[in-house]
Design a protein around this nucleic acid. Structure first.
Lengths: 147, 147
DNA sequence: TATTGTTATACTCTATAACTATA
DNA sequence: TATAGTTATAGAGTATAACAATA
């Protein structure tokens, strides 16, 4: 006798999914830590990224962004430079070494996703990605950043 | 100019989704902590649940299961009893108070999911749930528990 | 000797608030 | 006075290994 009540619940399901993905996204596989990979990806895909933007994008504290960027700079993957228009701000940029490391990590990630999504057809994968993207886009806008 | 490389990546997307969900699944909303809710749900929906089963289902350490069950017992939501067939094992059971608390939490979770999935049609929600369920089922079986 | 659960401990991650510099 | 980022510190969460009871 299983499942007497309602469905497993999307929250539990997504938590499991996310955890399973994280366990497989080892530093060994990606060539860098997952957090760094996510940050570098964001920096690559957007222009004039400030630390506050990274806070929102990665959903972490200002504090955590500082620590993360320190690590990335130590690894030579990114640099901070002052925003000439507002010298309180930093603009985060990818170094060429960071870009190369990111390309390698991207290949590893794609391989991992292929493996994880092996049970889905190409069309189903596209559908899953599209649906999750829409949900995430919807969640990020109307919500208050801090509860 | 955005998105020069590949897509955002399912890992980043799922991480964001999961984080956003967790931020909204406050103890105040559910009437209990999210972890406890997930554990109680699993116990309700399966029979003769051992602690090792919970480790696998929740993807946490044996250690964390002990701490979690201690909390749940202190709250009066579950109990451990020895498995008569193997006295090393504990079987985890829901108390009636735990069942009632779980029902309330379930309602809250459903409300939260409705809110989060507001941008999707009923059919799309079902599709999302089904696809994620299939991926998770596929991930749990062939993977080694510890890397 | 191996397994289930527990305890103790250390390590990482996250959150909070105080601080510096610029506006 | 307010904002962007930094630092310091504490709290929660997670992982590791040693241990007791049972097989």
């Amino acid at each position: 006798m299983k499942r007497q009540g309602s469905e497993p619940g999307l929250i539990s399901l997504m938590t499991q999914f996310s955890k399973a993905l994280h366990r497989r996204s080892s530093e060994e596989l990606l060539g860098m830590r997952l957090k760094g990979y996510m940050a570098l990806t964001y920096v690559r895909d957007h222009e004039n990224v400030t630390q506050q933007e990274l806070e929102a994008a990665l959903m972490v504290d200002a504090n955590a962004v500082v620590i993360l960027l320190n690590e990335l700079e130590a690894a030579g993957h990114s640099v901070r430079r002052r925003d000439p228009e507002d010298r309180r701000r930093h603009l985060v940029e990818l170094t060429s070494a960071g870009r190369r490391a990111l390309e390698r990590a991207d290949k590893a990630r794609e391989g991992l996703e292929d493996e994880v999504l092996a049970g889905l057809t190409t069309e189903e994968r596209a559908t899953l990605r599209r649906l999750v993207q829409r949900v995430v886009d919807g969640m990020l806008q109307p919500a208050e950043p801090r509860v």
